[in-house]
Design a protein around this nucleic acid. Structure first.
Lengths: 344, 344
DNA sequence: TTGAAAGCGATACCAG
DNA sequence: CTGGTATCGCTTTCAA
């Protein structure tokens, strides 16, 4: 099967096809098997130093890069940990967590891949993720049913970790009960003697998954007391905040819990521009304990959220991967506690 | 073809291996080829309605999920756009951009994958990325040489887009010259009559790639004038800011440009706690035009950065993929302009 | 110590 | 209209 050599490609044009291990083998004058042994440092077999060097030089010269898909197809598994990216731009809290996690999993020799699920919902998305045959999947936020988990496991995922409000059959769950966040805030405000509590919820779409439970948490806290809860939808814009602040006194509230510290900053600024005094007239409590809260005057009281560390989650994933028999557990995480500063 | 129903699998056990197209074919009583035709809606071939339904039902029943690696191995290409994730937690500006981009590429039927390169540098990393055989690679930040670009192209990447300070042979480049950011700020401060300019640079590692050029930009702006530039390293912590503010008057500065709005907020707060008046005694200019700047009092002057839209970049990628002959171009982007508010 | 060859799962060509 | 079959690039067992 004589092969006509291709003409040398012009240097700036599209380079000829990527070299395969067969090309390396040919150049080194050995078989593909030998190439594989050398390049993977296979300990099951001893290769002479001379051959080893010839292969390595050939690989270097051709700029050989192994084909991950072919490899994992053959191996029947990969070390890819898949993490669908959230559909809304993540906050600083999440970014930090994700970075830690990525680093920690990297140290354990996993490859973290953040995948744009794009519009697919729940069990639909699970199918798309399963096509990649990841060894583990970490799903931030809910929306994945037992069906989806099953699909993933069937397709080879040895661990499915859900970070969300409810635990799902078959999956490890990091129970992130955002209700606790609102609840803490509510309890705190009640204890400070506040009775008419406003709750700012973002008008921005996609945040409902968090803001809903946080609101409910406040409701739960005041349940059975004489206090009231008023929902205050607010877009993250100056004019919207000014509007809300403008009719603030007519609302007759003596406290407000905002979705997070950023909304608190927005509202507090608008209230101050309206000469509504904080905390005397209205107490303000934010959430997420961002740095900016410490920089406000008065300093912002906030609900600190203790996420599991990236390190911890990485270890959980690794354990589950190595021992798939290990029963999916529910981990009650997300400690929420109020950091009392000056605004309440 | 009577099929003995499998006993219901124990719900919590590891499911049996993922079904392949061969399993579907067997259950439907057809060949694997037919399965492939049906499931891909192949128009090159006509399949009877009856067969079509049988195949689809079989696939449904088995919970068949195609194997992406096998598919792209066979096809010789994928529609994966790879984007190495930055090594430092990204700011809000970048998050927003990335989300747009992901969405826009999704609409063009690409799959965006953010990949944790983890510690590998430059051309080393390129090899790791090339293993995935992506159809395009978008690299935020520099650090990739012509070699790396070549490796990627050889391995099948039809487009390599670099978002960084210098243009690289063979790659499309979005020239993000952060020097312009500092330059605008410097020019602005000079025009406002300031002569002794401090520049806050983050002590946090990993931000040097941005803060260095921004600092140099200010230097360039004052070059040939009587004005001076003083670098002020600052960690993003309250105590560090208080320390800097404490010795502020001894520095004898009449203006400061901070790395970004967040550092500006941190410093401004500390200055105000020290009764240093802004802008009378010291003008403050931030960068990135974040919402928080508008909420400070005095309102923060800042350098607004016009990133290319995710939409635009997605179209650039798509064009380059469809027509690889299209010469790599350098796109001068990142318009930087000062938004003058009250702090300067 | 090295080589030949059998697949991994999906697709597309060419016969029937 | 449908079924064999070669093939993508790589790993690994078995023979030489």
């Amino acid at each position: 099967m004589a092969q006509i050599p291709e003409p040398p490609a012009p240097s700036s044009a599209v380079p000829s096809a990527a070299p395969t291990s067969a090309d390396v083998a040919r150049l080194a004058g050995v078989s593909r098997a030998t190439v594989s042994y050398v390049l993977n440092n296979s300990s099951a077999v001893r290769i002479s130093e001379a051959t080893r060097r010839r292969v390595q030089e050939a690989a270097e010269e051709l700029g050989y890069v192994p084909h991950a898909a072919a490899r994992s197809l053959r191996a029947g598994h990969s070390r890819m940990v898949l993490m669908p990216s959230p559909s809304v731009p993540a906050g600083p809290l999440y970014s930090q967590f994700f970075n830690d996690l990525q680093w920690a999993l990297g140290r354990l020799d996993y490859t973290v891949v953040q995948y744009g699920g794009m519009g697919l919902r729940g069990d639909e998305a699970a199918r798309a993720w399963a096509e990649l045959r990841p060894v583990a999947v970490i799903v931030p936020g809910g929306g994945l049913g037992p069906q989806g988990v099953h699909v993933l496991k069937r397709s080879g995922a040895r661990a499915v970790v859900i970070m969300g409000p409810e635990c799902i059959e078959g999956a490890h769950t990091l129970l992130l009960d955002h209700g606790e966040v609102g609840h803490s805030a509510g309890v705190h405000l009640l204890a400070r003697g506040r009775r008419r509590i406003g709750v700012v919820t973002p008008r921005e779409p996609g945040l409902d998954a968090f803001s809903g439970p946080r609101l409910d948490g406040v409701r739960r806290a005041v349940d059975g007391t004489a206090a009231t809860v008023t929902e205050l939808p607010l877009a993250y814009r100056e004019d919207a905040a000014a509007g809300l602040a403008g009719r603030w006194r007519s609302l007759g509230l003596d406290a407000v819990f905002t979705y997070n510290d950023e909304y608190a900053q927005l509202l507090m600024r608008a209230l101050q521009d309206e000469r509504v005094s904080v905390p005397d007239e209205t107490a303000v409590v934010g959430a997420d304990d961002l740095m900016l809260g410490r920089l406000l005057r008065p300093r912002l009281s906030t609900v600190h959220i203790e996420l599991p560390s990236g390190q911890d989650l990485a270890e959980l994933v690794d354990r589950a991967v190595r021992d798939p028999a290990c029963a999916p557990r529910v981990h009650d995480s997300l400690g929420a506690r109020v950091v009392h500063r000056e605004s309440s």
